[in-house]
Design a protein around this nucleic acid. Sequence first.
DNA 1: TATGAATGAGCCTTCATTCAT
DNA 2: AATGAATGAAGGCTCATTCAT
Lengths: 215, 215, 215, 215
Amino acid sequence: MNVHSVSTMPTLSSARRVAQSRNGSSSDKREIISKAAVTVFAQRGFFNAQVADVARAAGVASGTVYLYFRSKDEILTSIFERTMKEGISEGRQALEGVTDPVERLRSLARLHLQRLGRDRDLAVVFQIELRQSTKFMEQLSSSQLRAYLGQLRDAVSDGQASGAFTTRINSTLVAKALFGALDEMATNWILSKRRYDLASEADAVVDLFIHGLAT
Amino acid sequence: MNVHSVSTMPTLSSARRVAQSRNGSSSDKREIISKAAVTVFAQRGFFNAQVADVARAAGVASGTVYLYFRSKDEILTSIFERTMKEGISEGRQALEGVTDPVERLRSLARLHLQRLGRDRDLAVVFQIELRQSTKFMEQLSSSQLRAYLGQLRDAVSDGQASGAFTTRINSTLVAKALFGALDEMATNWILSKRRYDLASEADAVVDLFIHGLAT
Amino acid sequence: MNVHSVSTMPTLSSARRVAQSRNGSSSDKREIISKAAVTVFAQRGFFNAQVADVARAAGVASGTVYLYFRSKDEILTSIFERTMKEGISEGRQALEGVTDPVERLRSLARLHLQRLGRDRDLAVVFQIELRQSTKFMEQLSSSQLRAYLGQLRDAVSDGQASGAFTTRINSTLVAKALFGALDEMATNWILSKRRYDLASEADAVVDLFIHGLAT
Amino acid sequence: MNVHSVSTMPTLSSARRVAQSRNGSSSDKREIISKAAVTVFAQRGFFNAQVADVARAAGVASGTVYLYFRSKDEILTSIFERTMKEGISEGRQALEGVTDPVERLRSLARLHLQRLGRDRDLAVVFQIELRQSTKFMEQLSSSQLRAYLGQLRDAVSDGQASGAFTTRINSTLVAKALFGALDEMATNWILSKRRYDLASEADAVVDLFIHGLAT
DNA sequence: TATGAATGAGCCTTCATTCAT
DNA sequence: AATGAATGAAGGCTCATTCAT
């Protein structure tokens, strides 16, 4: 359950992709609306935010939003999906060439917190607003989140396979625990009044997961 | 950001029945409504649930809900506060007489997951529904949650003071990480289709936090 | 449309009158509630005032109000009727022994403004709160108000009969105009921030009606 | 406390139709709703009337009402303000070129009763529905009503300055008395079952105020 | 494509009234 | 007679979504 940043724009259809290639405006607008939504949802909260607010922030009419999104819910969902997809591929890239299991975990953890620490609004949307109602959560958990957790789990089981990590603890459980720990760091950071650097906590968390508390 | 408690199902403990015979059933009804709300919120989600649904589930008229709660929001908040309070005092009791730092952490972790594992509806409300909008979260995080995290942090720093735990890692960070890990276990448990025993994961998580992954 | 003060208590039934003669409490309570209602309606407005407010101000339980009044409306209506009845009989008394037509008008005008000037809360209820919806008004105008206007009209037509007043103008019209003029004095007094003596305006009004503006 | 205006039934005067073609029908709809409200409020009473009733009468959806009015209250207030404004300017026009003090008073009185006599629904709203609760009244009395009374007062004091009217009686008091008299004529007309011509009473009232009852 | 006026279903909350005690 | 907890109908208002232009 977490995030990154908006970049590649998932176009709607090939017809649209053409229009897009002509003036670049078509799915630009989807992107513009999406970004506006991140800001608005972060500030007002998803339920309190009105579609008209998002439209205004995006500089378009309310009706226009519905040319790019099926519903208000879909705006939220799309933010999640697009950003998760990026996060996963970003993670994959970061792991290329890194063989040391500890370093691999550290990379993923840093990326996780860097993403959120970089864009506070996006962090708010992911840590708070996306956790609406079971229905929402179930949709999320079933798709990208599973893949994201899988990346963490693989990093752990690779380490276990190489003998660097203990096999005493189930790798899926470790992945969930690590994810949860990072997630909580992010949430605390958002809710905290202090403005500290979130990403810098990644190392301590990984240290904790690698060496444990025991002396 | 999370959850807990409702330990002894407090439906008419004998102590309460006495109080009840004294002042009528007034505080009972608040309890009845509150419990009905847990069920309803868990099933439909807080925003989709109507106050009338809660009332129906509690076997009272809609208006009656407002004799015991100021607003729909207050129902949710009160569930949180009551349960957190119980969770904290339950934690305090559990730690009495336990001196080994590892055991202390293990106790808290077990309690945390046991509480949620015992009442799935309550778990859903705590893991999902309570995490609405920043406003809600901020209210929650400032009060009880701080105390709850404090309990974890103290258990860690006690261990550090006794030399059992490393002082390399900040105790507050450990508390947040542990809390987050447990929290994620609970959320995964709720969203999972499999019906496994949540509490039994506590030991593995604590093991991970004590010994780490390193071999 | 106007008023005076609460005095004789219209008991509900002979059975009740007995109870009343025993301890004096039965219709005392109707009176107490009625007086409380005047205060509460004046302060909060009839529609905003709750029956519970009236009950609290009267020092009884909400349910008790319904032992003495059929409905919230009836409380308002009863204030009107009881007070009008008194006003009329007060007027009748005041006219006894007064033969000069001008003096008769002056007496009625003074009484009218004195009544309202004496009890500001009652004035508010009569000048403002009683003028709810056509339904209410129609009820009022058909009963006591007609009698009250009749009193004014008779005073005028007596003067016409004696040759003191011109017959050029219809006496009913004069009665309405005088009533309206006094009514407006009262309303202005209520809404004014200044605290002047209302009754002292009676003479000027009557002077105006007797001699006119013409020089 | 009272009423007026809406002189030329402003449903799409040609002047307006031009404005309309300029800016669309937006201000038209406000007008349509406002008129529908006058009818509905007159029939059912302001408190009993539902916004949905007004919407239906105006041929729009309930929500549309809120595109043109902030609240149900504002519909009522706006009726008052619009009509008063018209009444005042109508009065100013009518006085142009009329120098005789008596005629000036007569003009204002006639206009007052003509306005109400022309549109019974509007009269009901002004004489009955607008007189809700002190709060409402205070809002009204402070603004337009003061201006309206001022117009009457000036007509009186002009007459006093010219020597046509006695200075024995305060001009403000005369204005209030005249206003109250006319107001009561209107209220009685509304509540009366007989259907007589309201405006024709203006002359008698002014005659009464000019010459008085004395023979 | 874009607009934004219009829609109307939906819901929290109030409060007059009832009734078991 | 008195209580006051319980009732439940009722309604103002919001806002996601549509659609004529």
